[in-house]
């Protein structure tokens, strides 16, 4: 059978099966994003702290997670943690793994955003009697968001694309279902191309959005 005959016969079946993988893909991506947003802020605040005891572990964390592949981190969490008595489910391992990995990258976005706000803002807030945490919460971060939004959007795209590796620890997302379909029907070309097209339908509009946010930010400054 040629490519198009296969597509005509099984195309709809491929499409609906692949589509049923998207909830898992989006769960992993959004779970990891929330994890990374929270944990990344902690790392960023530790990194800009004046206290070495906070700064050094954060820097070590950052260097380690940016210096090793996400796949290895996932394997350590999914296959390694049971050695220490914690057996995560594939979904949990994927969210923790990509989240911890993402926290390292996102903390640098936070840091650049915080550092883009003039020092005088922090000094003014402190001289008004705010605590450093309050000043961060009410003065610095709200202003930094505008600078951080475009790179955060770009990072979300990266995160979404990274979820395509979590089938290797057994999460039933788009790529996992694609592979299952290939074993089932012994045809690969239409399935992988369709999966690819689905990713593009999400990532390209997101990239456009990131570019637009960036232009708006530049116009605003």
């Amino acid at each position: 059978m040629t490519f198009f005959q296969i597509l005509e016969k099984n195309g709809w079946y491929f499409f609906t099966t692949l589509l049923s993988g998207w909830p898992a893909t989006l769960t992993v991506a959004s779970g990891a994003l929330v994890f990374a947003l929270i944990f990344g802020l902690v790392i960023a605040l530790m990194r800009i702290s004046t206290w070495r005891l906070l700064r050094w572990p954060a820097t070590a964390y950052l260097e380690f997670f940016r210096g090793t592949p996400a796949l290895v981190q996932l394997f350590v969490i999914y296959f390694g943690f049971p050695d220490w008595g914690f057996q995560p489910s594939p979904l949990q391992a994927a969210i923790i793994g990509l989240g911890m990995n993402g926290a390292a990258y996102i903390s640098e976005i936070y840091r650049a955003g915080i550092e883009s706000i003039h020092r005088g803002q922090m000094e003014a807030a402190l001289s008004l009697g705010m605590t450093p945490i309050k000043a961060m919460q009410h003065i610095i971060l709200p202003q930094a968001i505008r600078t951080m939004l475009p790179p955060m959007t770009n990072f979300s795209i990266v995160l979404l694309k990274d979820t395509a590796i979590v089938f290797s620890i057994g999460v039933l997302e788009v790529m996992a279902l694609a592979r299952q379909l290939v074993t089932e029907t012994l045809t690969s070309a239409p399935i992988y191309l369709m999966a690819g097209a689905m990713y593009l339908c999400v990532t390209i509009p997101m990239a456009r959005l990131a570019a637009r946010l960036e232009r708006q930010r530049q116009a605003w400054q």
Binding site: I157, K161, D162, T163, I165, M175, G196, L200, T203
Partner: peptide, 8 residues
């Protein structure tokens, strides 16, 4: 740039 590397 839009496709995950695994998919490529």
């Amino acid at each position: 740039r839009g496709l995950p590397i695994v998919v490529i």
